[in-house]
């Protein structure tokens, strides 16, 4: 059995373990609630994490499998085009789900490392589950490659995190502006004595 096939076989267990790890970054009471309710509107946090972990894993699995088939039959054009095809649709979906989760974690009292760190937990989940199945890690090369992919996604998550935090400060500024911008603009237009401007309530 190849590394990719092994991953596919244990996919559900790995994702479940990974999701548990990721949820455990919340306090016990909350993670239980996030885990239990499956309703995307009543429980957006748990839902987003569930979907994101599953999609990220699927994407990585697809990459691993196509990579393996590439190296096995590097001459075959057919399999190559096949691989690029499946890669083209998955990442877009994955980025979107990753973004959803990081966006939430960016406003949930986590430090930066805590907010994106859950991604790295996948490495651990894979090792634990593979060890349980085959006894030892027989695929050092594949594992390293897999890890690099995980790292890449973590980097991406970090970019999203920073973007969200910047957005946050932007929103703060915008909101304060919206409170008075219109009046100030009108006052400027008319040259009204600034004393008459409504006092800012800060």
């Amino acid at each position: 059995m190849t590394f990719g096939e092994l991953l596919r076989e244990n996919g559900d267990a790995i994702v479940r373990r990974w999701l548990d790890d990721a949820l455990s970054t919340y306090s016990k009471d909350s993670s239980a609630a996030f885990k239990r309710r499956k309703d995307p509107f009543g429980n957006p946090v748990g839902h987003a994490l569930r979907v994101a972990t599953a999609t990220i894993f699927e994407t990585l699995l697809a990459e691993t499998l196509s990579n393996a088939s590439e190296s096995n039959a590097s001459e075959s054009n057919a399999s190559e085009s096949n691989a690029t095809e499946s890669n083209a649709t998955e990442p877009a979906k994955m980025h979107e789900h990753l973004r959803e989760v990081v966006k939430m974690r960016a406003v949930q009292q986590f430090s930066a490392s805590q907010a994106v760190g859950f991604i790295f937990r996948l490495k651990q989940a894979v090792r634990t589950k593979l060890e349980a199945t085959v006894g030892d890690s027989r695929f050092p090369a594949e594992l390293v490659q897999f890890d690099q992919r995980v790292d890449r996604i973590a980097m991406e998550a970090f970019d999203i995190y920073v973007e969200c935090r910047e957005r946050l400060s932007e929103l703060r500024i915008n909101e304060v502006k919206r409170r008075v911008a219109w009046v100030v603009h009108k006052m400027d237009q008319r040259g009204v004595d600034p004393e008459l401007a409504p006092a800012d309530s800060e």
Binding site: S27, D29, S30, A33, F34, V45, Q109
Partner: peptide
């Protein structure tokens, strides 16, 4: 317990 928007969105018990 899980009806408050602050709990749903943040998870502070």
């Amino acid at each position: 317990a899980d009806k408050c928007h602050f709990f749903i969105g943040g998870g502070d018990p």
